[in-house]
Amino acid sequence: MADERWLDGLVALVTGARRGELGGGGAGIARALASHGAQVVVNDVTEELVAATVGQIQQRGGIAWGIAGDVSAPQDAQRMVDATVEHFGRIDILVNNAALGGLVPAVEHLPDEVWQRQVAIDLSGPFFMSRAALRHMVPRRFGRIVNIGSLAGVRTGFVSGAPYTTAKSGLIGLTRQMALEFAPTGSPSTCSCPPESATRRSCDGARIFSRDETIRSDRSIPKVSLASWSRSSAGGIPDCSPEQRSR
C-alpha cells in the first residue's frame, strides 16, 4: 500500500544494525525503515554483521546497503556518512542505535578501558555520527536524527553499569542541545532530535524491536522513535514522512 511507503525516497543510516538476540534493535529499525520505503544504510562493526541485515532487507524487496565501521572513531564516522551520500546521493535520517552496555564491575573496581570504551561508543559515537550527518543535512535543510536512548539515561540501568548510565544520560543532553541548535525556528536546518527520542531498557531491546509491526504499535514505549515517525504523530514530535520536508 502506498500509505505504508511514507519514507519513499529518503535515505536512512542505522548504526549498530546487526542481527542477533540482543543486537536486534538496530536490525529491526533498519527493516522497518526499509519496509516503509527508505533506502537504508546498515552499519555495524564488521562486514559479516552488516551483510546479514542487508540480505534480510533485500530478501523482502527493500533497498539496503551495508557499511562496516566504528562509530566511536571520528574519521570512521565521517567516512561512513560520506560513503552513504556517495552511494545514495543524500542522507535524510540517522538512527544512532549502536551502543555497548551490559554488566560491568562496580565503579571502585571498574578498569579505565571498560569505562572509556562504553562512553566512547555510547556517547561520543552518536556525536561523531550526528556531526558528520549534519554537515550534509544542514545545507539541504532537512534531516532527522534519532538517538536510541535508555531508561538508564533517565534513572539507572537494570543490567548495566556506570559507563552506560553516564553515557546514556549524556546522550539526552546531546539530543537536547542539537534539537535547540537545529530546530526549525531560527535555524537554517530542520534537523530535529526529540529529547526523549527513544527510550528502551537494554534488556528489552531485542523483544521490543524484534518485529517491525511491534515497533509501530507498541504504545508502552514512551515517545518511541518509529511510533513518532508515523503520520499520526503529534505533540511536536518530528515526522519523517516526505511531505514534511517542505517545512
Partner: peptide
Amino acid sequence: EALYGLTRH
C-alpha cells in the same frame, strides 16, 4: 548531563 548519570549510578 552525563555527569548526572554518573551521580545517579
